[in-house]
């Protein structure tokens, strides 16, 4: 059974059978506009929850992607590094950033589920 969770910083993480996939939300991709550059973590890198995992840039903005959970990187989506526009096209699908093995799956319980995240978006001033 897949667990999908969201952060205040607009990352999503889906967890299924021991492996988690991380990306940025539709809202984040829309806010950034056309994404032109993505810096992904190295495979094997260990990430702490809330630590910087990736960088995503549009023409006029750059922002860090923070890891929603602790663990180590097991795969990266090279396709989005080559074609950053894929993240705009499908942020919560083909535009995933990296996969990781979680060292503390319990951390996910502190994140928002889909409904909570959507309620959170409504509180933002846009």
């Amino acid at each position: 059974m897949t667990v999908l969770r969201f952060t205040n910083e607009h990352e999503w993480i889906s967890f299924d059978n021991g492996t988690a996939t991380v990306g940025i939300t539709d809202y984040a991709a829309h806010q950034l506009g056309d994404i032109v550059f993505i810096e992904l973590p190295e495979i094997g890198k260990s990430l702490a929850k809330g630590g910087q995992a990736a960088v995503v840039e549009s023409v006029k903005a750059a922002s860090e992607v923070y890891s929603p959970a602790s663990g180590s990187v097991t795969a990266i989506n090279q396709a989005i590094a080559d074609q950053p526009g894929q993240v705009n096209d499908s942020p919560e699908g083909d535009g995933w950033f990296y996969k990781m093995s979680l060292s503390a799956p319990g951390e996910l319980s502190g994140l928002m589920d889909k409904d909570a995240y959507e309620a959170y978006l409504k509180t933002l001033d846009h």
């Binding site: 550059f37 840039e57 549009s58 023409v59 006029k60 903005a61 750059a62």
Partner: peptide, 12 residues
């Protein structure tokens, strides 16, 4: 490639 520059990236 202006995201390298101070007016966008500020302290970074």
């Amino acid at each position: 490639l202006s995201t390298r520059e101070q007016h966008i990236r500020r302290e970074k």
